[in-house]
Simulated assay, not measured.
Amino acid sequence: MIAFTVSRTIACTSKKIKSALVLGLFAVGMSSSVSSFAAGTAKDCKILVMGDSLSAAYGLAKEQGWVALMETRLAEKFPHCKVVNASVSGETTAGGKTRLGALLKQHQPTHMILELGANDGLRGLSLDTMKDNLTNMLVSARRSETQAVLIGMQIPSNYGPAYARRFGDTFTEIARKQKVPLVPFMLEGFALDPASFQADGIHPNAGAQPKILENLWPTIAATLK
């Protein structure tokens, strides 16, 4: 009888140990799966910058441009985010629209910063065409499940008050219709300050690049959260 009781106790204890081991392994597996999922999600942030000379660090060392400064900040605030700067000096919205499809396919970004239109305005191109091109790019990004941020610009009134006003309003209209975040004016706060520009009077100098980032960062960061 004693032997039977001891044997039964040992058997029960063995079952409990096995159950505990199974539950432990299950918990470890679940924890590993969750960690792997979280890590995979964290690695999925890639920001495509589609811009012109204002985002291509024209006249500056690459590391002085606002995009490079953004990369440094991302490393601190959102270390899982990487940046692909596809900006080209002199780019128009037509050129950007032509290039975007291949870039979306190649890089598969989760986010896009669209900073184009300044050269359209400076060349006096059709604002209706500019609007169509920017809209097309935002639609393409949405189809690729890419969250876009639209960066607005303004041009001097010497291009004609009506044209200049329509130019700035076009970005607001596009953002509203496409339901994307908008930074109304990337040069806000220093556009009329000669000391913030290079000798050509058009391109912001190195000292102005942090100001550009400060104008853009709150909207960009909000999309990453």
Rank of each mutant, 00 (worst) to 15 (best):
R123D: 05
K62C: 11
G117A: 05
R176Q: 08
R99Y: 05
T13P: 01
E214G: 12
E91N: 01
A39Q: 13
M70Y: 02
A199K: 11
G121E: 00
Y159W: 13
S144T: 01
Q147G: 05
A39E: 14
K46S: 14
Q198R: 08
A57M: 11
Q178G: 01
K211P: 06
A164C: 11
F171V: 03
S140F: 07
E214H: 11
F171I: 01
A20V: 11
P79C: 12
L134Q: 02
K16G: 07
T93N: 04
F26G: 12
R73G: 09
I2M: 13
A94R: 08
G24W: 11
I17V: 14
T9S: 05
G101C: 02
A56E: 10
R142P: 00
E71N: 12
D200K: 10
T219A: 08
P79R: 08
Q209F: 13
L25K: 06
C12V: 12
T13H: 08
F167W: 04
H107A: 03
N215H: 11
Q154E: 08
A61W: 14
E91M: 00
G90I: 08
S33W: 13
I47T: 10
F185H: 02
A195T: 13
Q154G: 02
E173M: 02
N119Y: 04
A11I: 09
S140L: 14
L48D: 04
F78I: 11
C81A: 14
A191Q: 05
S33T: 15
V6Q: 07
G160Y: 08
Y58M: 13
A38Y: 09
S35V: 07
Q106M: 08
R123G: 02
T9Q: 06
K179C: 04
H111W: 06
S53G: 15
T98R: 03
D52C: 12
L213R: 09
S31P: 02
Q154D: 01
V49I: 15
Q154A: 09
G121L: 03
T92W: 04
S19E: 12
K225I: 11
L104W: 01
L60M: 13
N85F: 06
T135N: 10
G124V: 04
N158K: 04
G90N: 06
E71S: 15
P161V: 11
E214P: 02
V67M: 07
I17H: 11
S14H: 09
I220E: 03
E188L: 03
D200G: 11
E188S: 08
A20Y: 10
T170D: 05
A38P: 00
Y58W: 13
T41K: 15
M186W: 01
N85K: 05
Q147C: 05
